[in-house]
Amino acid sequence: MAIAVSMTVNGKAVGAEIEPRALLVQFLREHLRLTGTRVGCDTGQCGACTVHVNGRAVKSCLVLAAQAQGAQVVTIEGLARDGELHPMQVAFSEHHGLQCGFCTPGMIMSAADLLQRNPDPTEHEVREWLEGNLCRCTGYHNIVKAILAAAQTMRGMAKAAE
């Protein structure tokens, strides 16, 4: 039996009739065609499906769409604001923090959440934070570098805004 869900995704109110068993990631990919959020495993380890739900990084393959009723959801497609890339997106490119690109949206969303919580992480803290995101291409070296660089940029921006 279908149920109605509604939520805000990337600033837009959206809704649909869905099966209760629909995962949030399926809702995003199949109903909203926001395919930047990806599915890389079925046990919840890879983190390619990471999005922000009410401001926190969540694996959208481990959440029913129904659980996100009324939530504020941000996906990789909504991270850039007013045509300006998020500093994390810029840093990933500048530091070659991506190769095949498949894990990248999840990595960026997860890393963006880290910096909300900890604006000045150490390399060790970055590596620990990434426990929930797998990458098979980069060896993590440049991902870590990119996140540390983005943190520096964002601290600079925060200071400039003061």
Partner: peptide
């Protein structure tokens, strides 16, 4: 040189078979 292919991947606009 930073990569040409990055823009689509960092914005979630890569297009893989399942997309």
């Amino acid at each position: 040189v930073p990569r040409k292919e990055d823009l689509r991947f960092i914005t979630g606009r890569g297009r893989y078979t399942d997309d």
